[in-house]
Amino acid sequence: MRKDIMVIDGSKAIRYMLHTILKKNYKVISVPDGVSAMYYLRESAHPDLIIMDPELPDLGSWELVRHLSGSHLYASIPLLVISNQPEDETRVKAINYGVMDFFQKPFNPLHLLDSVENILVGNAMGKVY
């Protein structure tokens, strides 16, 4: 079965790019902001992975990451963050919120694909044990 990936990013160009590179192996849905993200999560089956910009147009910085990672409903969904912030800052927050992996724009899409695969495989193995 194809894994579901949810992309949350305010930039349409980035969403389009992620769609294109991920659609070969995964089922992708994308949303531009926090309201749409929370709506989708409320109404649909949980995705296997969320790839997101921690800064979204309708929310505070890292607000959605904080909510998802602290939520009993959503904390089990692995998060991968692509941020516009400096590496140090991103790393501290990523570790703090238990984010699986993080990238900074500009990022190498091939490295991102590797990371996505690792997270999804690792997560599947985690469920077996």
């Binding site: 769609h19 294109t20 926090g34 309201v35 749409s36 929370m38 709506y39 409320r42």
Partner: peptide, 21 residues
Amino acid sequence: RMKCSAAVEDSAVKIETAGSM
């Protein structure tokens, strides 16, 4: 806040699938 924004108008929720891209 999230639920109210989504409820105010349907257009507030934008979900793109492979087809719409």
